[in-house]
Nucleic acid binder design. Structure first.
Lengths: 191, 191
DNA sequence: ACCTGAACACCGTTCAAGT
DNA sequence: ACCTGAACACCGTTCAAGT
């Protein structure tokens, strides 16, 4: 896990500072202008050359994954809370809501997440697999409790959350979305 | 409907030829490289300057809408066929499949369609409203037949088809998609 | 009325040169 | 080892000049 280079000398401090600055600026730009925002503008505002940004984050997805670390931590914290929920159906439902909210952290995030879903080398893919695994856990509990259909997989529900996040990014501003959400919920529920 | 300019003289023939060439090239590029393909490349291969392309199709969406005319015609033809289907549930289901296929005409088409869904001035929006209306008709028949829940709207099912087309564009290559489809179908069905 | 090609502004990415 | 700024290739969009 420790990717520290061979020798550690003075220059590492400004490298770390640059990395932090890039990450800070990127988080703000992603939040304000979406996941597709100009990386050149991020570098400029962070006060570094474009090549420096590329050195630290070789792809846009790497930068996205790094910027998502804090929200991901919050999501995992919420997962811990939800493990204590007694009703398995409520636990699953609230987990799916939290998942949808996480996938809505940046406008335009669902598209690269979908692309990463079948591309194992993407930095976003790892996080996807982890989240699908957690969804499987909540789902299994609900299935044991008899409130979720046996044939459904965690991956399906992850995809459903991703779809809702996608439409939320360009909001369908009438009753379509709630109904669609109900369409999906009644799809996995046995109630 | 006839948008012919005030006076018609000789130059109109080469304008029409240019328009046809642009449209022909665009259809091929959209099909091969997706809805986000370079318009500059389209203009170049069509043998016109970029400004000529913009004169005929002021926005990318205008060009998309024009390129979709033939597939849209086929979809409307299929609608006519499906009106003759006796079982209302089968009619609705086959219409939704046809809709999903139409929305998958070009890779990356679902994104601009979603954007157009709430933006009345887009050339794609008009076609959306029409398709939602048709979906409402099939849905109403199924609801009268008792095979679809009363609270569902045509817009919901249009959105569901759009979502399936979106994920199909970057295929989720295992069982997730069929199950998600079933999630949605069981969402509207009363069976 | 229509077309053309140049021009402008922007972006992603890479590379030689510095420290 | 790391950073820098220039450079390259590309794209969308607009505009003055032609016919």
């Amino acid at each position: 896990m420790d990717t520290t280079p061979t020798t550690c000398r003075k220059p590492r401090t400004d490298a770390a500072r640059n990395r932090a600055r890039i990450l800070d600026t990127a988080l703000r730009h992603f939040t304000e202008r979406g996941a597709g925002t100009s990386l050149e503008a991020v570098a400029k505002e962070a006060g570094v050359g474009p090549a420096t940004l590329y050195r630290h984050f070789p792809t846009r997805e790497a930068l996205l994954a790094a910027a998502l670390e804090t929200p991901a931590g919050e999501l995992l914290a919420e997962r811990e809370e939800l493990r204590a929920v007694g009703d398995p159906d409520e636990g699953l439902r609230r987990w799916l809501l939290a998942l949808e909210r996480y996938l809505s952290t940046f406008t335009g995030l669902p598209a690269p997440v979908l692309a990463a879903l079948n591309c194992d080398d993407s930095p976003l893919a790892m996080s996807c697999q982890e989240l699908i695994g957690i969804t499987d856990e909540f789902l299994a509990t609900a299935q044991q409790g008899g409130t979720a259909r046996p044939a459904v997989h965690g991956r399906d529900l992850f995809l459903a959350a991703l779809l809702l996040a996608w439409t939320g990014g360009a909001p369908v501003d009438d009753d379509a979305l709630p109904t669609l959400r109900r369409l999906m919920e009644t799809g996995y529920s046995t109630r």
